[in-house]
Design a protein around this nucleic acid. Structure first.
Length: 429
RNA sequence: GUGGGCGUAGCUCAGUUGGUUAGAGCGCCAGGUUGUGGUCCUGGAGGUCGCGGGUUCGACCCCCGUCGCUCACCCCA
């Protein structure tokens, strides 16, 4: 687009407007998640969508791909350095440290997240996440609870082709020891790695585990696996998480090569993959434990675990499986007021009906009865209330059933004063 | 950051080897029915063919650039 005066503005690259019929799927999904969060004892947390850039740099790791080149960083007028949040967890932990709520603290959120990258299917510069965080306990039971919440949530949406991958990253010491063993193995097999990792394997050995190329997969498959190198405590913790999930019938797939993108993860990590989605964007949610994050953000050592899910991707998965979260909320119009008196009787009438609790719409611009009825029909309203000169004169209202197939006998006139009761009666039928 | 595909009405798309006034379906508006919606019929509004430049007697069509959309790589939700 050029900058001529006739050119209208568009949503920025990688962002999208979501309008009504489509947004009802969002409403259904968010409402369902909120319901789950409530059932599991989580309270809603709201934090600013921008933070001091350090919150994210120190949180997700300065060397992570996201922090290095995908953050929306900007300066305000007083030269403070801020960044739009690229993910949900770091902000919530920052808020936890700032306010020191009693633990264990269980919070859920719905938030936009921003990453500066080239958009494609299932990947946007602004996407949205639904998630939960728990701070102040490392009880394996809470790992089980968080993962179960996520799993049951997907199930409630009607998704069936979702797999849960799980792994344990161990804690600093045992992971550090494992990375050494892994590096030894990689260094002994450098020549067989893929083109890219042949050069950069030493910078972040764990990333090689995540490589999808056959060459790397072959080398790492023969190599040491993280779960085999955990210390006794981490091994025990992981075992209890897995037993807990098993006991609840939540199927999980041990995936030793599962490595997630942020540096803060320790011990339990997991990811939900939608098999209905093709391509690389099939991860619809994930999370894990981050027992060192609070310290990295300057607070006291505090265990934490969280889960985040990408709204857009879950909706893609729903579409692929032929289910829609919009069906989880009922959103139907009760009444549509048609006014042809030329005196604007509708304004008072709709106010009265809405006050009585009915979802009510009306026509505007004084259009013909035929035109107003057409709009009424398309609105999906159950009943139309007609007020024309005749009703006006006798202080009545005509109630017409828009769902009746019998056009001749679909309506009746009632006294204006009885309208609320009459409508209530008809709507309960 | 790298590469492929695509930009024609509000939406989905036609548009012949470059040749008069750029079309269809859906949607929208009005009428057929001066008080009545789902079907049907008739009519109407709506486009500087993304934008800029070039080639040509002539460009929606060919060439270049640019912006945007889209898909993929990387990485992630």
């Amino acid at each position: 687009m050029n900058e001529s005066a006739a050119t209208i503005f568009r949503a920025p690259i990688g962002t999208h407007d979501v309008l009504d019929p489509e947004s009802s799927a969002w409403e259904g999904m968010i409402a369902t998640f909120a319901q789950f969060a409530y059932r599991y004892g989580f309270g809603l947390v709201l934090t600013p969508i921008f933070e001091d850039v350090g919150v994210f740099n120190r949180g997700i790791g300065e060397n992570s791909e996201v922090a290095k080149k995908e953050m929306y960083v900007f300066e305000d007028r007083a030269q403070r350095r801020y960044a739009l949040r690229p993910e949900g967890t770091a902000s919530v932990v920052r808020a936890f440290l700032q306010h020191q709520p009693t633990t264990p603290w269980k919070a859920w959120y719905f938030t936009p997240a921003f990453r500066y990258e080239r958009p494609q299917a299932g990947r946007y510069r602004q996407h949205h996440q639904l998630g939960v965080e728990v701070l102040g306990t490392d009880d394996p039971a809470i790992d089980v609870e968080v993962i179960t919440l996520a799993s049951r949530f997907y199930c409630a949406l009607g998704l069936k082709q979702v797999r849960l991958l799980i792994n344990s990253m161990g804690h600093d010491v045992c992971r550090g020891a494992y990375v050494e063993v892994l590096r030894d193995h990689l260094s002994a097999n450098v020549e067989q790695l893929c083109d890219e990792h042949r050069k950069v394997w030493s910078e972040n050995a764990l990333r090689v585990l995540d490589c999808k190329k056959d060459a790397c997969v072959e080398v790492t498959t023969r190599g040491p696996m993280l779960p085999d190198h955990l210390c006794v405590d981490c091994r025990e913790h992981f075992a209890r998480v897995r037993e807990g999930l098993d006991s609840l019938g939540v199927e999980s797939i041990l995936t030793p090569r599962l490595v997630r993108g942020f540096d803060y993860y320790t011990r339990t990590t997991f990811e939900f993959v939608a098999d209905s989605l093709t391509g690389a964007q099939n991860s619809i949610g994930g999370g894990g434990r981050y027992d060192r994050l609070a310290e990295q953000l300057g607070g006291d050592a505090t265990s934490g675990i969280g889960f985040g899910s990408g709204v857009e991707r879950v909706l893609l998965a729903c579409e692929a499986e032929g289910v829609s979260p919009s069906s989880l909320i009922k959103r139907s119009l009760d009444l549509f007021v048609v006014d042809t008196t030329g005196e604007d009787v509708a304004t008072k009438l709709v106010d009265e009906l809405r006050g009585a609790g009915f979802a009510t719409q009306r026509a505007y611009d004084g259009r013909s009865m035929k035109a107003q009825m057409k709009v009424a029909d398309r609105s999906g309203a159950r009943l139309a209330l007609l007020v024309g000169p005749s009703e006006r004169a006798s202080d009545e209202v005509t109630i017409r059933d828009l769902r009746s197939e019998d056009f001749e006998h679909a309506q009746q006139r009632v006294r204006r004063g009885d309208i609320v009761n009459a409508v209530a009666l008809l709507l309960t039928k």
